[in-house]
């Protein structure tokens, strides 16, 4: 799980072009959206593609992403339970 979390942090920084953010800046339970990392609705769509492309998880309704993308911890746990690749 720790490995997956670190992997996710790296991918998020890369995919969302977070130039000034390092993996170590993101705590596992930090909010990704709003106050925390400050991601927005466009980032959510980017993360939905990331889930599909890298882990074979299809989310058809962006609204379902809300709980999954709450933090690195919630993302990692959803991925480990639902991944197809």
């Amino acid at each position: 799980m720790t490995e997956l979390k670190e992997e996710l942090k790296g991918k998020i920084i890369e995919v969302l072009n977070l130039e000034d953010v390092a993996s170590t800046d993101i705590q596992d339970d930090d909010a990704l959206f709003g106050e925390g990392l400050g991601l927005d609705s466009i980032d959510a769509l980017e993360l939905i593609v990331l889930m599909d492309k890298d882990y074979g998880i299809k989310l058809s309704d962006p609204k379902n992403g809300k709980a999954i993308f709450e933090s690195i911890t919630t993302m990692a746990s959803y991925i480990s339970q639902n991944r197809t690749k």
Partner: peptide, 9 residues
């Protein structure tokens, strides 16, 4: 496949 919205927007 695997297209993201940012560039389109």
């Amino acid at each position: 496949e695997f297209l993201t919205p940012t560039a389109f927007i």
